[in-house]
Design a protein around this nucleic acid. Sequence first.
DNA 1: TAACATTGCATATCAAGCTATGCAAGTGGT
DNA 2: ACCACTTGCATAGCTTGATATGCAATGTTA
Lengths: 158, 158
Amino acid sequence: MTFNKDESAGYLANHLARLFARELQARIKPLGLSTGTFPALLVLWEGDGLTQRELIEHLDIEQPTMANTLTRMERDGLIQRRKDPADGRVQRIWLTDQARALEGPATAAAEAVNADALAGLEYEERVAFQATMRRIIATLQAPVGDRGIPARRRAESA
Amino acid sequence: MTFNKDESAGYLANHLARLFARELQARIKPLGLSTGTFPALLVLWEGDGLTQRELIEHLDIEQPTMANTLTRMERDGLIQRRKDPADGRVQRIWLTDQARALEGPATAAAEAVNADALAGLEYEERVAFQATMRRIIATLQAPVGDRGIPARRRAESA
DNA sequence: TAACATTGCATATCAAGCTATGCAAGTGGT
DNA sequence: ACCACTTGCATAGCTTGATATGCAATGTTA
């Protein structure tokens, strides 16, 4: 049996993510936003003043990737980095007014991408799809030894 | 209602793809392979001598991305580019013996990643998940005006 | 308190994706 | 035969992801 990419979950996930990114990029570029900054903004719109570490824990992104993204966001006038008065190592991230003003149009664009992508799916299929994605994400985030063990049972044996 | 990333199909797809890529990278790095070259190899193992254009049609990758990937693959001894005798514009892509020898271990690694990721899912859930991914991919590949229209009906009205 | 370990972030460097652009080789129409 | 168009690929330059590494600030411990 040869390996068939069109039946490989990993290949399909990669392809799907690229298509979503293309679509989102087309819709938020007019706002002056790009796909990489978007997840950080989603977290910061819920409440800013976070540290870089707090951001990466929310987003499961490596630290240097986030540092890089924040540098671009600062350059583009979306955030400011200000030193934490209590801990000299920490830089807290604050949104600019410009970034705050983009929350409405930007989240509307993202909603539109999702609606577009999922058009043609029944409600039950959408719910099941997202639930499955979350389960696989949880599996891949678990340490290798714990794979395939439901989170409940994992918690019990801790 | 605020936008919630953990209920956004696009965000979940991006996160999922990153986790798959991390996992695959860990497993094929020992073979001297990387995630970007993998899809091209999958196509070429089925039969080489393809043009760059044929490759990008198989993989839905932009042409300069593929040109770049092929340059790295040539550098790493995985492929050779040879001029097509009949058409001076065309470079045909041929696998090296080294690349041919990697088919077994590399596809085994990819199978292992998929098995790992999908462990904990029932058979029906896996099938449904992959079917849904393929449907969303088809939707996002369709021209904007045709979104939400089943492929069957789209074909009829052509 | 001096030495060591940890934490938070930055920098360097690479891969993998994209858009914009250029150019040489082929094709077609007159 | 010539001009215009198309096709195939390369290059430049950017974003978004990763690893490896360094360093300063803070914590911890003998």
